[in-house]
Amino acid sequence: MNSIKITIIALLFIPLSGFTQDEQPLTNKEKRQNRTTYRGITYAALGIGSLRDFATSPLTYTGVFIAAGGFKINLDKRRETEWGTPFSVGFFANTFNDHSSSSTLVSFSPYYSELYRLNALSSDKLNVKIGGMLQATVIGRLNPDLQNNSLGLEIIPTLFGSIKGTLDVSRTTDKDKKFLFFKYKREKRQKSLAFRLNTGLVNASYRNGFAYSGQSFLVNETQLFDDYQFKVFSGFRMSSSLDYTLYSRKTTNAVQISYVWDALQTGGDLDTFEMAQHGLRFTLLFNTK
């Protein structure tokens, strides 16, 4: 399994060979001033997912989630800085052998990301950027069937290596089209298609200890993270997003439809937690600079 992981991760970073940087003599201040700022509001996101916490059950729970959130992104052709705070609620269940259990999940995942242009793979139409993202995902789960282990709470901090390719798919001229007997006109419009892949370089988790439950409330000193352990440099996490962005003809704002994917597995010598989510995200982008 480990060799497969290493091979896949290595393949993903092949494009990084031949890395060079711009040589345009702009000061950092000038570069910052020239960068465009968008504030994004994800007003709806929905998707499907699965989770399994081996500390309490070997069964996989599947279900749906809804999400929302906001982010701010400063970008130009050379650099892209983004931070955001997505929030989601999920409803998962396992039905097997005429037995059903459900797990309600709440997740909060703040992140900060920096990307820089990779000239070797970029062109007028395609802008490839690489960099990293720091994300801390807080996951709370409630499964009443697990009695004193009904509450699950994890924090999954991850430092990702990231690569993002943005393809300019704008319509640069007006086009007259015809469908059956109907004639219509497709006006020129700015559009882009972007794919981003994040691979966990430093995976960590803050999670329950050996017995899963804690004993603090038994000794009259209740703690939220009772008997928790911090594990670093173990586990796995990967996420991606495919964004289709449609810019307004009249303003500099845009709408974005994204397919997002996130998969993680905690590491260490204790029972692991694994979760994957696939979602469709609808975002409004407001150009504020």
Binding site: T56, P58, N97, S150, A211
Partner: peptide, 21 residues
């Protein structure tokens, strides 16, 4: 002993003591 909680591969659940007073 504080009882925990868990689930078997066939969907049944269980609990047993994991602490000592």
């Amino acid at each position: 002993g504080l009882p925990n909680g868990g689930q078997l591969p066939n969907g049944w659940t269980y609990r047993f003591s994991i602490t000592q007073a």
